[in-house]
Amino acid sequence: MYQIINFLDKMFHFTAAKAHCDIPCGIYDPITAQIAALTVVRMVDLIDEHHSHSTIQDKEFYNRLVRLITVKEEHSEKVKHEIRIIFGDFIKSEHFEKYPELPLLFHKIMQLGSADKQKSEKSTAVELLDRVNRFAEIFWEIKGIKTKKAKAPYAPNLEFVYPEH
């Protein structure tokens, strides 16, 4: 029964009742969104690889393809979810004065998250990661924490913004 409702939720988006962060826990970190965005890039790479290397399009081919697409779908949504929480709960209106790009950056991440679900394009996936990294940079700057850029130690080894300490 749960699976049916969960499927319907994906189609109709049921209202959510919060039993979460009722006490503002203060634990916010964009790294979850960054990892999810990197996963989207990885899935696009694996989909391309799978598509170009498979000579027989049998049920195993489709099984793996569907699994890769499913993970891409889930992580695109996860990026949107995580960024939405930080934007909604942590970012305050006064931050818009210092970072006027924030509302548009947020909107762009939401759009790219959706675009990455609709298609399997490397450039769109990388752009999502870039925007999420920029969001992370602003987030840590607001918290007064310096950041550094370093390549993720796993494929596709793209750059992440990390807090320095």
Partner: peptide, 22 residues
């Protein structure tokens, strides 16, 4: 009647994040 999704852990262990209620 409405189906509502539970988000978060403050009702745990009775209701966990991701559960649905009618």
């Amino acid at each position: 009647f409405r189906i509502i999704k539970v988000e978060g852990e403050s009702m745990s262990p009775d209701y966990n994040s991701g559960d649905y209620v009618l």
